[in-house]
Design a protein around this nucleic acid. Sequence first.
RNA 1: GCGGAGGUGGCGAAAUUGGCAGACGCACUAGCUUGAGGUGCUAGCGCCGCAAGGCAUAGGGGUUCAAGUCCCCUCCUCCGCACCA
Length: 872
Amino acid sequence: MAESVQSTSEAQGRYNPAEIEPKWQARWDADASLYAAEGHSGDGEARAKPKFYCLEMLPYPSGQLHMGHVRNYAIGDALARFMWMRGYNVLHPMGWDAFGLPAENAALKNDTPPAEWTLANIAAMRQQMRRMGLSYDWATEVTTCLPEYYRWNQWFFLKMYERGLAYRKKSKVNWCPQCATVLANEQVVDGRCWRHDDTLVEQRDLTQWFLRITKYADELLDGLDKMDGWPEKVRTMQRNWIGRSEGALVDFAVSESSEKIAVFTTRVDTIFGATSVQLAPEHMVAKGFAASDAALAGQIEEMLAQQKAARESGDLGAIEKHGVDTGKFAINPFNGELVPIWVANYILADYGTGAIMSVPAHDERDFEFANKYGLPVRRVIVPRDKNRQQQDQERNAGVLRSAQNDNVSVENPVEQLPYTAKDDAVLIDSGQWTGESCIEAQKKMAAFAKANGFGSATVTYRLKDWGVSRQRYWGTPIPMVYCTNGHAGTEPGGVVALPESALPVLLPAQVKITQQGGSPLGRVADFVNTACPVCGGPARRETDTMDTFVDSSWYFYRYTDAKNSAAPFDSAKANYWFPIDQYIGGVEHAILHLIYSRFWTKAMLDLGLIANDEPAARLFTQGMVIKDGAKMSKSKGNVVSPDLMIERYGADATRMYALFAAPPDRDLEWQEEGVAGISRFLARVHRLTMKYAATAKEGVGADAAAEAKLLRTLHQTIAKITADFSGRWHFNTCIAAIMILVNEVAAAEPPMDAGNISGPVIAEVFRNLTLMLAPFAPFLAAELWQALGGEGAVFRVAWPVADAELAREEEMEIPVQCNGKLVTVIKVPVGSDAATIQAAALADAKVAARMEGKNVVKTIVVPGKLVNIVVR
RNA sequence: GCGGAGGUGGCGAAAUUGGCAGACGCACUAGCUUGAGGUGCUAGCGCCGCAAGGCAUAGGGGUUCAAGUCCCCUCCUCCGCACCA
């Protein structure tokens, strides 16, 4: 009986996260002020503190947190807690990217309305986040599917419409048959839907709403240069996506016709080397030729069919270049030459003008194509080298050569073709521009084309306007109507913007979700039929909804003023908090969310709502969480559930493992044994601290050396972690450093309460250990803080400051090498000079043995580092 | 093909500036302890070797007293882009 009582009390004293974590969670839930940002308006006391806006990307409420979320939030939470302890006024919010297709799919499957399903998922995930102990200010929570939020999407849409930033046009758009909706270019990956990598995207001609992101193309591009707080990888991806290209448009007239073919080229300086014009198979002029040429029409059809097949098989790159001669000719406006017009499969319809001038001598692709079809290759660019230039001009004068018989590189000191350089290269055989440098010629020739009305210098972008119409139900209704009869000055069915007073346009409830094409809203008569706000006559509402990336483009501004019902947010509040000091999320949003939200920020700046021109000063992209070497996925069956980990080891151990197993930017291999290891470590800290708290705290400090050593380790640990939070973010080594400290405390354990470490010193060690644990294991830190008699919340206690004097080593080990190989390690006082170290090294017996019978050639002594004796 | 990140024990990793390679943890081995259930403690743990010693950071070359780290070449993995005129 007595034994069982004792074992129960022992069990209670043991580290039991299942007991302490819910206890603290309940207390934190009851105290709304704990994680609340102070002074949203930036007034009062908060002004005295520097602000810090710490943000993790908001999740889609699927209903389940996954390990990627856990890792993302563990990083952000550690940073937020650290910044609080450093005395910052921290904004650390969370919200829900709550519109989107999965809710409709769930509705189809379970017959649950999307709103109900989504809100239930949010409740479940919010609870998971609380269980994780994440320090969010729930008073600022944002849920994008609620009218309080999405009415501001509509408001922004109207503002953009007023300024011509939102417009409607008919064009080829990407259609995902799985989603039964249109996608933006950014949402098409390798010709497939970003959500369905087994579903090919189709092209459809539809009239859609677009946002004019291209207006900001240059700003978006140039801004990247200054964004040194963003990973170079993301900046590079965005630069490639924007794809700015400077060149010229030149019109080639079609011979014996009034038609013209505009070509885009970045190398107008090579135009005297053009030996054909190549059209994309979709080009209008090609279609025109095909209309009266059945054979050509058939070949173009075949070309398009092949491209489609290649897209389906996924290896678009493997497709061989081929083309067909249309039999027609175009006139080179610079020299009046007739060149054949071909249709070729390597010409992209949606880049530039869908037509090029082919210059085989100075372009890899044109060269390959000309070789295949025996088209002439004419050299018009040579390196800037007088002799070579002269030699070349003589050889080339007036000669058109085919690729096959041009063996220039074998016997003649002439560049291998194609020669694509433009720096330090000059023109030959190019009329009045012969002898000009390529760079100069480009400017002069574009100006010439402009002066003579057949072209101009121009800039093209790969970036296209953002198509935001979605033929889906669960999204923000677009606040536009079509006036059925048309009032004064407008067409019947013309577009009419709703006035602001008509917002929000509410998404109707009780809508039948189907997988058919066309927005489900189109089948809701009550919604569709409305009155024209201008003439009062009958009108039809726009039934498409907005891309959900609209929601996430500005949500982080709403956090600064989440309850505002008169405006999306108060500018003064946003201006206090912005830019985001640290944004943390996955790299998969590099050219989706992260480019759209930069665009939105620039548009809001132009609307006068904010003062910053970029949303986030610093961006961190964490690595993936993998298992058995592969990304976790249901199909691979290697998903590890955060709930299960928390149940077995506690939230502290789960989060801390996510930070310990790898540096945060690298991929992390999830190993459950590792979580168990962290759990044992936390149990050890708990046991040591509780034992200390329960025993004598007064010691006599008998062992000064042991005390100095412990203090040294303590202050080295503080210094390391403090530096890492503002620098490398290598939390794995931060946690390793804490483990080293704990190992030293444990080594001192038997005598520590008996008195060989004095009371104030051991108190200092436990106090600071607890503080350093707080960002990584908040539940345990709170528990220990209380046991140690700490006042208030541990997360508001000032972060410890490292004392460089206490951290300083007295003695250090210096490796001694002979010929670069380690012989021994000697101990010398820190700061010893070279002579002292050398003397100590030479006095060592092992060193002497090594040197016996040999001559010392050289001795290298690097104070504080090593000694290397070179002998022969 | 182009661009980026990587390649270090059985595993996750460390080495921030060219200066003891493998900190910290996992797994494993041995011993002690505990004893109804992921317990605690001690010791060992890169490879070869009884040892002395030798070898080792994808592979090869180079610079240097000294290279995981700098330079050149090659191979492999992952990510992004991919006929962008």
